[in-house]
Structures are given as C-alpha cells and as structure tokens.
Design a protein around this nucleic acid. Sequence first.
DNA 1: CACCCGTGCTGATCTCGATCAGTTCAGCCG
DNA 2: CGGCTGAACTGATCGAGATCAGCACGGGTG
Lengths: 236, 236
Amino acid sequence: MIRKLGVFVVLSPPELTLLSDLQQRRRTYVAGRDLVDQGQADQAAYILHSGWACSYKLLPDGQRQIVDFQIPGDFLGLRSVLLRISDHSIVPVTDIEVTEVQTSDLLDIFAKTPRLAAAVLWAASRDEAVVVEHLVGVGRRDAAERLAHFLLELGARLALVGMGSKAGFDCPLSQYMLADALGLSAVHINRVLRQMRENGILTFRDGHVTFDNYARLTEFAQFDPTYLDELGPLLK
Amino acid sequence: MIRKLGVFVVLSPPELTLLSDLQQRRRTYVAGRDLVDQGQADQAAYILHSGWACSYKLLPDGQRQIVDFQIPGDFLGLRSVLLRISDHSIVPVTDIEVTEVQTSDLLDIFAKTPRLAAAVLWAASRDEAVVVEHLVGVGRRDAAERLAHFLLELGARLALVGMGSKAGFDCPLSQYMLADALGLSAVHINRVLRQMRENGILTFRDGHVTFDNYARLTEFAQFDPTYLDELGPLLK
DNA sequence: CACCCGTGCTGATCTCGATCAGTTCAGCCG
DNA sequence: CGGCTGAACTGATCGAGATCAGCACGGGTG
C-alpha cells in the first residue's frame, strides 16, 4: 500500500510515520467468510496486502450483484466508513492479509496530512471510475464484450501491482462469480468463455487467464485503460 | 450547496468564508450543450444550484450509458478533477445555474479545513453509493423493477432538497434518457410506463412523476433508501 | 472406501426486451 | 398556412441470454 500510494505522492517523514503506525494491525482472514456485512454500522476499513476480495450487494430475493473485486493494494470498505452504514458486503475470495484502518485513523490523516487525505480521495475516485466502467459494461455491452472488457481491466489493474501482464494473470474467480459480477448466468459465462477459447483470443482455465491475442481482444472489447492509471493534480 | 453541506457539518467562520468566496463564480449554461467532455484534461468541477444535469459515457459505436443525473445541491465533475482526465461527459438536461470550483480551490479546502475535505469525501462516497445501486439495478433487476427503483431513488434525492415528496416530483427527463440510464430501449420504457400507469402504481406524464401508490411501489421495487441519507462519523 | 459437493460443462426450451416500422400529436419556423 | 422535428406511443418479429435438466471430474470428509 505504501508502495502504491508512494507512486502518486511524495511522502514526508510524518506521513510515513503515520502510515507505518498502521502496519501494527495486520490481520489474516480466510476465504468465504464475510468481512463486512450489508447494513452493519461502524465498520473499520482495510488495506488489502495479499489475496483477492469481492464486494457485493445481496437483493432480498437472493440474487447477488458483485460490484467490484479488490486486489492487493486496494482499499476495502472505505465507503462503509465514510457513510457509517455499510451499503454492501465484502467477502475474501482467497485467504487474505489486511491491515485494519479505524475511523479515528482516517480522522488523523485528514487533520494532520492533507496530502494523504487527497491521496485517499484519489483512491476513492479511481474506485468509482472502475464501478462506472462496470456499469457501462452491464448496461450497454453484450456478454462477450462485457466479459472481455472485464478481464482486460482486471489484467491491467493487476499489472500495476506486478501480478499480471499482457500475456495473462492468475485468477481465483469461479464462473459463478464472473456471472454475478457481469449480470449474466454462469451457464452463459461458460459458453462465452468456450467461444473465446475456440476463437483463439482468450483462455481461462485452471485459475489462469491467458490473453491469446491481446491486440484483437482490446479492439473487440474497445478497452481503453486511461481511467485506471491517471494521476490527479492534487498529488503532484 | 452551503445549506446542504451545512446539514452535515457544523461550519466554522473561516469555512464559511471559504465557501462564500466561491459564490463569486456563478455561471449559467443552456440545456443540451456539453459542459465537460470525455477525455478532456484539467477540467473544473461545479456545484449545481438549479436545473438538472446528466453524466454519461459514450461508447465508440455511438451507444450511450447515462451514469447518473445531478440535481440541485450535487457536485458535477468532481471525479474529473481528482483523476485529472475526465472519464465521462456532462450535459445540462435543463438550463442550469452552477458555481465553478477550480482545482486550486479544492487544494485550499484540503489544506485549510480538513472538515470540509471530509465533507467533500462524504459527498463523493454518496455519489458512488448511488452509482453502485444503479449497477445493481442494471445487473440484476428486470425492466419494471429497475425503472420503479430508479424513479423512487430520484424522488428520495429530490425530497432531500425540497423538490419532491412521496406524492411525486417534476421530472424533465425524456423516455430516451431514461432508456440510456437504465440500459433499455426507449420503446420498452414506454411500454413499462404504460403498464405501471394501468396498474395504478405510478404515472409519468407531461414532465411529472406521480407515485399513485407509494407503499406498493417501494415494495415492488424493493427500495431501501438508507444509502441516501446516512451521515458519516467524520462529520459529526 | 463411498459419498458429497462445488465447479465446469452441455443441450433443449423459453422469454424478456431489442429492433423494425410505423402513427399521432404538439410545437416551431419559413 | 403547410412542412418539419422531436417525443410519445404501438404492433409484429427476432434473438441474446435465462432457465431447466443433466453429466463429469476432483477434492474433501465420514
């Protein structure tokens, strides 16, 4: 996390102290047991160090919409803290390692180091940009474009933290999770994945995504990654 | 805007000065001409005083996904400033009145008044919560539920600024805009509206939405407004 | 060992909502 | 005045993706 934020902000000694103080509260959580529950109040936020997590909303009829996946370096549940009541749930996809950030720590950060506050706001904006792009996909792209775009985005985000490349990445998600993220049925995800494999543009097998033809894939999905790596002027 | 933020933060004199300094730069813009364009750099943000606006993304093939509508009291283009490059466009739906907020003003706010910074972050989080709920609708609700939920949310947001109630609200949106927001065709929006009118739960006619049966409507749409009015602990 | 259970995978059928192709009506402008 | 445009509205047809039903496999766990 420090590495990641450090890319965007030149950190001063007091800022570094503040951040490293946080490192005391390292925790690990196992895959599958909810970390944050929809409707819960006064949650802590977390910074994800290793493993994948997933934030989702449950509808009363039992349907699930996955809002986003978090990978190492991402915040978990920042919005739950800011709004005080969590409007979504978070579950680790794999076993994860996190550090807890209390509400009071955030207050400290805002009072003492406006630059770090700006960094947090930047991170929140980037998260929102990801959600917005997700919305565009679900609203206006067909199943294949949607899936391709989603996996490309995930690949680009992972590449930023050294866990992926234009060749592919390791991916612990099941076809059911992909379905709930993309607003499709698992059956249909399966079919679309088969078509992409047969067309030689993408293979998802045994927990690994391979971009068989990165150029054709980005063209097909109309993938434009600018929203992922731009840097705000507040942080220059 | 001051009224709205004032609900959430007890403002100190220097904070009030800072805010009222901003009021110098009042502008008006006409309906239909883009205020911010996708891909543009170094945009200003705006605070909306009167009228409605709409933020959307355009796909290369000409399709449009409307991400959110903004009503009086909302920020416009906050994310464009924070990410430096705008990942979306904004167009006034009606003639609007705004005040411009420069990037440098935001820097000021962050440096001088951490509480106002927290308020801005809170506003951004609430915006994100709205987008997330929108995503859930597009991903997992059928056309009727989606439309009902959307109009209820809009009504609740308008009620917060005194422009709507459980009886209904004035709504300048065309069926085409509703379609682009909800990921449906305008034709289908029309049919669904007719069904709701015939079922006596909702009427949308001549620029006015009437909730004919608010209780039945919230039940049908499974509308839960908590995410709209919760207040963060940073602001207490 | 047998027995689950989760995940991947597939064929057959159904359906919601898109698309196409119009009509009507209310401004608005020459 | 007639012609034009944009929005609301409607019927007929089509198709992407859901749903249902089922098989195969591999890795736990009694």
